[in-house]
Design a binder for these strands. Structure first.
Lengths: 342, 342
DNA sequence: GTGAAAGCGCTAACAG
DNA sequence: CTGTTAGCGCTTTCAC
């Protein structure tokens, strides 16, 4: 395998000049550049990125810690983030935390091992008490999710509370009063479950309606379709009356719709259903699913851009400015699974 | 940031001994090991993985090149591969090729830049004529997909042809004769589209039925639900009679089902529908989707294991043995979207 | 079992 | 605009 020194010798320049050419340093005579590139070509030389990373102290790689790619929301989010990173010449290693505390703690350690320069982290199991884990980590961190934990860390958020409140309001406006919440978790995490439940609760309480425990559908096994169906079944089996469903993500909503239809309830006449995330599938269920579009693309672009800026600051020795809080635009997408508003 | 030399000084040993302890070298006195680990702890030392990679010439990272994570099949496959890699202490960078030739060629170059030690590659756009691109790459490569291109490369395959044939046979056995194929691509790639179409064609021809062009639904924009719906609409709009649908993946099948239902066809009475991949969603559509389970977990485990073995061979200077061809078990999962066989 | 010396391939810092 | 010098932090090699 040829090295930079081989290329330099062949081009009749120093190794540093080869380095400059390959790094895109602008002040190089055109003829020199051409000679270097020709030598690179002739030798079939490829830059040893590991050596560069080692010497420069940076890897050009960022970590993306999310629970699970198999969930369409995270898969689609990951695609957006990979695309945004690519536009900035950053690479991404995905760190699926598997909804475990252990997985999330491991992800937070990666940058310290110099495996990645910084981290985009979508927490699902950490709790408020873990806030200090996120301070003074010594590397740039961008948190995805409502601003929690710490106001010293950059956040890019998804309006979890507002979205769930809007979803619930939509059903309330249509006169529904027996609205189930599907996707409850027993663990008191700071993830979307807590926040979306808060939005649901706030919407009910604003109209003087108390939360009825029998209407809460639990999905501790994860926010998959199957668990949505099971949670819906559990609620229905309790014998409680139901005329609306707010599910904490679209997969749960689609599972709940399946269960409702199996039991002969018609949607939206008997039961209105709202999801959250606006995954592609939501458009093609029968009926099409009303859901909250949390501005995924915006989230991805802003999160990567922000991290990139922090990394550049670190490279220039700047001790990053004030933490940023960006809230993506949220939008309720009304489709066939909810009754028209009066 | 403390270095290995700092740890060595503190523990009263040489850097090499620290290195040995951290690398799990077995022949070390227990007391020495304990002293080293204590020093590591006291200093909060973390191994600089970049330096290790640079010196050792390996990264401990493998690449996973797939078209797009937002497609549940690839998202779920990626999760399985990430899990299998983790079990072997390998890390993974995901390289979404975006269904572009350019993206696939870029992915093939990554290992040469020492960004990853080897590659698991699920090609979607390369054609048979590209076969020589895959020979003598100088790093371990495992191809996902029917054995094509080259018999010099390891393959882990998914029975694309057999699966599609079985899916088509199921409908034929039920007496259906006007079976649409949804998911055709104009580009003559070596990806699943070509192979699954081959299975469809073979099944028809085995019964002396000619392929009717009007029954072919094109999805050049990608195998998403929306394109499944559009392709189905195009077939139906042509006025041709349809009593069965073989879709080349589940997302297409679910989109096709949506379109059929919107137009008042009942499934499976009027039209039987079969998908491919057995993604989680397939279980929760109405009706539940009959589909081909291509043995995804098996594919992931075998692919990673194989690559890991090749990497170990490289490390030991072994010039890898004969190429492996592993075919995962395929299984037709019959659900409500197809008529019972007579 | 452990240490000393050498150097992987590149880029930072500066000189010219 | 380009070259020189030095050294990043670790592992390889070999000695003991």
């Amino acid at each position: 395998m040829p090295t930079m020194a081989d290329v330099a010798r062949r081009a009749g320049v120093s190794a540093k000049t080869v380095s400059n050419v390959l790094a895109g340093y602008p002040y190089i005579r055109e003829s020199t550049r051409a000679r270097v590139l020709a030598a690179v070509d002739e030798l079939g030389y490829e830059l040893n990125v590991t050596a560069r990373n080692f010497r420069s102290g940076r890897t050009g790689v960022i970590g993306l810690a999310v629970p699970e790619l198999g969930q369409p929301y995270f898969g689609e989010l990951a695609d957006e983030i990979l695309a945004a990173a690519r536009r900035r010449d950053l690479r991404v290693v995905v760190d699926p935390t598997g909804f475990t505390r252990e997985g999330e703690l491991a992800a937070l350690r990666e940058p310290r091992r110099r495996l990645v320069d910084g981290l985009i982290f979508s927490p699902a199991t950490l709790v408020q008490a873990d806030a200090d884990l996120l301070d003074g980590l010594g590397y740039p961190l961008v948190l995805l999710g409502e601003q929690m934990f710490s106001d010293k860390v950059d956040h890019v958020t998804m309006h979890n509370v507002d979205g769930a409140r809007a979803a619930t309001d939509l059903l309330l406006d249509a006169g529904r009063r027996r609205i189930a919440a599907i996707g409850m978790l027993h663990a008191p995490t700071a993830g979307s479950a807590t926040l979306r439940f808060r939005g649901y609760r706030e919407a009910l309480e604003a109209r003087g309606i108390a939360v009825d425990d029998r209407l809460l559908g639990w999905a501790d096994e994860g926010w998959h379709r199957g668990n949505g169906a099971r949670a819906m079944a559990a609620v229905l089996d309790s014998g409680v009356e139901v005329d609306g469903v707010v599910a904490f993500n679209d997969a749960l909503a689609l599972g709940a719709m399946y269960e409702l239809q199996v039991r002969g309830r018609s949607i939206p006449q008997d039961v209105g259903v709202v999801g959250f995330d606006d995954i592609e599938d939501a458009r093609y269920s029968t009926p099409a699913l009303t859901t909250v579009d949390p501005g995924r693309r915006d989230v991805a672009e802003v999160a990567v851009g922000l991290l990139d800026r922090r990394l550049a600051d670190v490279a220039r020795g700047v001790v990053g400015g004030a933490p940023v809080l960006h809230v993506a635009d949220m939008r309720l997408v009304e489709r066939g699974s909810t009754p028209a508003r009066p």
